[in-house]
Design a protein around this nucleic acid. Structure first.
Lengths: 251, 251
DNA sequence: CCACTTTCATTCAAAATCAATCAAAATAAA
DNA sequence: TTTATTTTGATTGATTTTGAATGAAAGTGG
């Protein structure tokens, strides 16, 4: 039985029974106890289930459930590493803006014990934030079909009621001349506003965004610092580093 | 029997019987007296139950909110019918407020072809609304752990930027003297605001809410009309109908 | 008030479950 | 093919849970 197949079967079984013992799963899948144990631990750290002594139970909070594939994809090591480093910049009790998007989503688990307060425009972020016991505020605004991000004038204006120690912003394009850019002007407005109302703005971007240019401008490079990964092209990075501070996370 | 499973069974049994003896639980679960005792102590320190000599009873707190799962399970067909009728009140191109909660969630599929615009404070509603191609705005505000509803002063104040043709509001208590009420004062504020900024306010409530009273007041009966089901007690309904319009959906 | 019964908290040893480790098997990469 | 890397299953000792035993505390009936 395949790894993914087995995990799927475990979740399946749990949806049926609410709680299930390790022995049951061993019998059902034919895998060893050790393997089931590992699977359960994985599934727990991905928030699908909750471990209990002797087995597992359905994770209490099942408000929003991305498919296994979605989660697995989001756990790409690059995003994960970048998120981990970005989170390490945060001090205790800061107030934080978390932009919508999968990279900032990866950041959430690392914030759990920092006693931060988070404001976000990402609908999908909310359940995860609450799961990690993080006080969460949501900006108002129009929900974008597809990503369920809140964007536009209304979102931006409710943002102005807050002040942030740190704003973590996702972006589609980073270019020394064109600055930061993103496809949707409504989102660009929100990102721009968040950056300008924060003491420290941090752009989180995997290497594919470097030297890319998108439709709507968010601001110039010096408006924020950048966290990216060592997958990025060295020459391009050097150019960008002349404009603003860049942290390159080793993968 | 698993530890978690056993605790679940104990709570289950209690919900059924209000009070239960240790011996009953020993028989029911097959665990020893010592184990049951330990479980009861655990459950008590987590505020799920109250120990009494010889057994345990439900801790009847006034501010008690069932989990999403519990609500989901309760009164499904009734909610569905109520939601269907409530949706039929909506005309084309109306602007609508949808309160957080499972009853209003059930309303969404019925709104698909009405070209309405929806404003909601329910995070869980957003993906479903977008899925049904309904233009969606979200109020800002603090996200409540557990239900992921947006509530409080901020949520209420962003609401004031809209005007609604119809507001659909969920509620926990409907009482001729105490009016509409709900456990959380922050949510009460949002509900009250939504009602007052709408041309027509509709309270959606299954029969269990009739004559119930909760902690925080939302408004008086005449502030809104009510849609409920024929499961409700006729005498109690008559009393309420003296104060406001009530639609009783036949099940 | 007393004797008597039931329930309680505490302790202890047995059993079950756990995380960690390591070598074998399966898979991917060279 | 050969060589890494990953996944797996068995084993280990540590930890947690469990059931029985004990005497103290609380309830019961005279």
């Amino acid at each position: 039985m395949l790894h993914a197949q087995r995990k799927e079967a475990i979740v399946q079984e749990l949806k049926l029974k609410e709680v299930v013992s390790i022995q049951d799963l061993v019998d059902k899948t034919g895998a060893s106890e050790s393997t089931i144990r590992r699977d359960l631990n994985d599934l727990e750290s991905d928030n699908f289930i909750k471990r209990v002594h002797g087995g597992a139970s359905l994770s209490r909070q099942k408000i929003y459930e991305p498919t296994i594939a979605e989660k697995e994809a989001a756990n790409q090591p690059e995003k994960y590493k970048i998120a981990e480093w970005a989170a390490s910049m945060v001090k205790e009790k800061e107030s934080i803006f978390l932009d919508a998007g999968t990279t900032t989503l990866a950041l959430i688990p690392f914030l759990e014990d920092k006693q931060v307060t988070v404001v976000t425009n990402g609908i999908t972020h909310v359940p995860l934030l609450l799961q990690h016991n993080i006080p969460t505020y949501v900006t108002g605004g129009r929900a974008k079909p597809g990503t369920a991000a809140l964007a536009g004038e209304k979102a931006a204006s409710t943002l102005k009621e807050f002040r942030f120690d740190t704003a973590f912003v996702g972006i589609n394009g980073i270019h020394p001349y064109y600055g930061y850019s993103t496809p949707d002007p409504d989102e660009a407005l929100v990102k721009h506003t968040a950056i300008s109302y924060s003491t420290r703005a941090v752009i989180i971007a995997d290497h594919s965004k470097i030297y890319d240019v998108s439709f709507a401008n968010v601001g110039k490079l010096s408006d924020a610092q950048i966290v990216t990964s060592s997958y990025a092209n060295k020459d391009q990075l050097r150019k960008i580093q002349q404009e603003t501070r860049v942290k390159v996370v080793e993968i």
